[in-house]
Simulated scan of single mutants.
Amino acid sequence: MKRILAGLTVAIIAAAGGATAGHWLMHDNDAETAHAATPAERDAVARLWTAAVTNPDGKPQSLEMFKDHPVVINFWASWCGPCVEEMPALSQLHREYAKKGIEFVGLGVDSDKNIKAFLQKVKVDYPVYVAGFGGADIARAFGNTAGGLPYTVVIDAKGTVLSTKLGQIQPAELKRTLDAL
Rank of each mutant, 00 (worst) to 15 (best):
K2A: 07
R3L: 13
I4A: 10
I4C: 07
L5D: 02
L5N: 03
G7I: 09
G7H: 06
L8F: 13
T9R: 07
V10Q: 02
V10A: 15
V10Y: 01
A11E: 00
A11N: 00
A11W: 05
A11R: 00
I12A: 10
I13V: 15
A14Q: 10
A14S: 10
A14L: 14
A14R: 05
A16K: 11
G17W: 08
G18I: 04
A19Y: 08
A19R: 11
A19N: 03
T20D: 02
T20L: 12
A21E: 08
A21L: 14
G22Y: 14
H23N: 09
H23A: 00
W24E: 14
L25A: 10
M26Q: 10
M26C: 05
N29I: 13
N29C: 08
D30P: 05
A31Q: 15
A31W: 03
E32A: 12
E32D: 01
T33V: 15
T33P: 11
A34Q: 15
A34N: 10
H35T: 07
A36V: 12
A36W: 05
A37Q: 15
T38G: 11
T38K: 11
P39C: 06
P39R: 01
A40K: 14
E41C: 02
E41T: 09
E41M: 14
R42P: 06
R42H: 10
R42E: 05
D43T: 15
A44G: 06
V45P: 04
V45M: 04
V45R: 09
A46N: 15
L48T: 14
L48K: 07
L48C: 02
L48Y: 00
T50D: 07
T50W: 01
T50K: 14
T50A: 13
T50L: 11
A51T: 03
A51H: 07
A52L: 12
A52F: 08
A52G: 05
V53S: 08
V53F: 00
V53R: 14
N55Q: 05
N55H: 05
P56C: 01
P56G: 00
G58P: 08
K59Y: 03
K59H: 10
P60H: 03
L63Q: 11
L63F: 06
L63Y: 01
L63D: 11
L63A: 06
E64W: 00
E64D: 13
E64Q: 11
E64Y: 03
E64R: 12
M65L: 12
F66Q: 04
D68G: 13
D68C: 02
D68T: 11
D68E: 12
H69K: 15
H69R: 13
H69Y: 02
V71G: 01
V71S: 05
V71N: 03
V71A: 09
V72M: 09
I73K: 06
N74A: 04
N74Y: 02
F75I: 08
F75V: 12
F75A: 09
F75Y: 07
W76E: 02
A77E: 04
A77K: 05
A77W: 03
C80A: 02
G81R: 13
P82D: 04
P82Y: 02
P82C: 02
